[in-house]
Design a protein around this nucleic acid. Structure first.
Lengths: 216, 216
DNA sequence: TATTATAGTGACCAAACGGTCACCTGTCAA
DNA sequence: TTGACAGGTGACCGTTTGGTCACTATAATA
């Protein structure tokens, strides 16, 4: 099935809006990139702003499908190594997918100029990943893989640094290898800090609730 | 001493560039805001781009003075509560200072359109605070306030979530109270996770290195 | 006093922009 | 066959934009 001109316009608009900003994008270049004349655009959208709004509609719909419901979560990791693998796979995809990459750029550059972008940015950069990992961390705590604590706070502490590094990649794509390595190092560091210790530390926790526990 | 017109132009340019972006800023409005005619601007700067570059020069100079050298660091906290206080004071200032606030906006919106802004953004959002806290955390580890680990990694894990929340504030300033509260909650959570346990754990550390060490 | 540098003005220009309009063309239903 | 319509074109329009230029006023200097 072929892509309708209406959708082709939106696809190209995402590219140009993301790379040049709303104001930096002009309809002549957009039309030329599609092999159309400028006035042809007006057969599909009423104005530049209408294209912009349609693009935001699409982004909101995509976001709702991807992060809106907590039903289509990835399977909860059953070991530290599985958490590393899942995270790296997820981030590797997020980082490289051209659409998501452009979306990040657009959200960052236009977050102060459009109320809808503002809300999307907060969802995308602050809440999306964090909410997902909060659920997973809650389960991993019950499974004894992570120390008991507040899953939401833990997920926030986990995803924020990763998001920072994703932003670094978005700014400087040539540092991809460095970024991926730093993410993995951070994930392993995070696990080392937060995993449920076995051995005597485990016992210590049990003992500490006991008044008799003293020097060993 | 009065402010030179050249500097007044830069001050106003920061405001307009930050709020409307480089492309969204026009020299007529800028001049009008200063009570000047547009052509007067050209007595001080050769072009719009020249104003932009002069502004970036100023920002780089400011950054170099503030974060460039590690000499003018705040005193290292001697207790958990001091770390909370220092962090909240630092972030409270960073968040509210109008100049820094505008700088954040400018760096975020223009990071993909200008190579110098790109580098500044990485320094500002990723390295600045982190480097500062890395030094402090290193000292706090030696002082037995924090568990021994990699200070740089710890500082990164500490500052990234805070920076995320600062970005949230920059996007949605009406959520200031919520942001400050979340930052403080995170800082306290972070300390709880990473502080050196006292009791016998403290003694264990002392015994393993230096028997009989006492300070004050 | 005459001169010169500095800071400022308003009119103007060419280019670029979003948007409109009359017109063309193929497709499909009445 | 005809007529409506979706899709596309190029010329054109008003506005905005960065930038230029001739000109003026003031204050310091030779």
């Amino acid at each position: 099935m072929e892509i309708s001109t209406k959708d082709r316009i939106l696809n190209e608009a995402l590219i140009m809006f993301a790379e040049n900003g709303y104001r930096g994008t002009n309809l002549r270049d957009l039309a030329a990139q599609l092999g159309l004349s400028k006035s042809a655009l007006y057969k599909h959208y009423d104005s530049k702003e209408a294209i912009w709004n349609a693009l935001l509609d699409k982004m909101e719909a995509y976001y709702a499908a991807r992060f809106g419901s907590m039903s289509n979560l990835p399977p909860t990791p059953r070991s530290s190594e599985e958490l590393v693998a899942l995270t790296m796979r997820l981030i590797g995809f997020t980082i490289r997918d051209p659409q998501i990459q452009l979306t990040r750029k657009l959200l960052l550059t236009e977050q102060f100029h459009d109320a809808r972008v503002c809300k999307l940015a907060t969802k995308h950069f602050l809440e999306g990943l964090a909410n997902m990992f909060a659920v997973m961390f809650g389960q991993m705590m019950q499974n004894g893989l992570l120390k008991q604590s507040d899953p939401a706070m833990l997920a926030f502490a986990f995803t924020s640094p990763i998001t920072s590094l994703v932003h670094l990649y978005t700014r400087e794509p040539d540092r991809e290898a460095e970024v991926m390595e730093r993410i993995e190092r951070f994930v392993r560091y995070f696990i080392a800090i937060n995993q449920q210790e076995t051995d005597w530390n485990m016992q210590k926790t049990l003992i500490s609730s006991d008044p008799g526990g003293e020097d060993k």
